[in-house]
Design a protein around this nucleic acid. Structure first.
Lengths: 126, 126
DNA sequence: CTTACATTTGCAACTAAGTTGCATTAATAA
DNA sequence: TTATTAATGCAACTTAGTTGCAAATGTAAG
């Protein structure tokens, strides 16, 4: 079930993803937006936005779900197979604009894949 | 801190990983071995075995940690960068013996990466 | 074989992420 | 403007994983 109504909560949430390729964890969003809306609402809206192909998600190395804006996804085709990068210094995680070629597999049907990279981002490399 | 003593619990746990490339989730291990040892013990032994380079772990699409045998890891070098496959039909997840070449990145320091693939395994493809 | 002592274990209580049911509130079409 | 249906808040719950501490057990030295 996707978004049907453009409510205030939806707009506030979408605003957080404006003009950025940074991925935000649910936890992060709850601390940021907790005064504007309930955490349940945050979880529910994120789920709907993902269904609609507006956001995509991945599980970080800490097991916490993160969301980021989609570039070329649709309701039917969540094909955002770019890698995600997580910085061990500042904790920031972001989408990488790099093509990943999934190894060919004869005896398995690949439906989705995600590459997660851990390291130091440009600002933390020193 | 790695394994110091070869206790009964350690042996029972290691047995589960014998002769298989299948990855087991902590939850799965707790249901299997819960009658032999406490879940805290399971968590602690798994952590130690990972420290020792005997097991390696990854977080599945469901956010649950999974463990599998290492082939060429050591205490210092946990370089098991093979992809992991998770079947959406039977739920089984396993290590894949495939090389993954991580895309070159000029402005980031890559320390670790994991490729997670979702699909149907050979038995569930039909 | 026995002792001594450090490591492991079990237990219970806790934390933190995420979910559910239900009554209330708000958006939208008529 | 109202009726209807979706969205929200709240509280209570579930589940994965963690912590502190006392009791049990493995191991090396005698």
């Amino acid at each position: 079930m996707g978004i049907i109504r453009k409510t205030e909560s939806v707009e506030i949430l979408l605003n957080e993803f404006q003009d950025t390729e940074t991925a935000l964890s649910t936890v992060e969003l709850i601390t940021r937006l907790g005064k504007f809306m309930n955490k349940t609402t945050i979880y529910r809206i994120l789920e709907k936005l993902e269904d609609d192909g507006i956001l995509h998600s991945f599980i970080g190395f800490d097991g916490v779900k993160r969301f980021a804006r989609c570039k070329s996804c649709s309701k039917s085709n969540h094909s955002d197979v770019h890698p995600h990068f997580q910085c061990i210094s500042c904790g920031k995680s972001e989408c990488l604009d790099i093509e990943v070629n999934i190894p060919d597999m004869s005896n398995r049907e690949v439906l989705f894949s995600q590459l997660l990279i851990k390291g130091k981002c440009d600002l933390c490399m020193v």
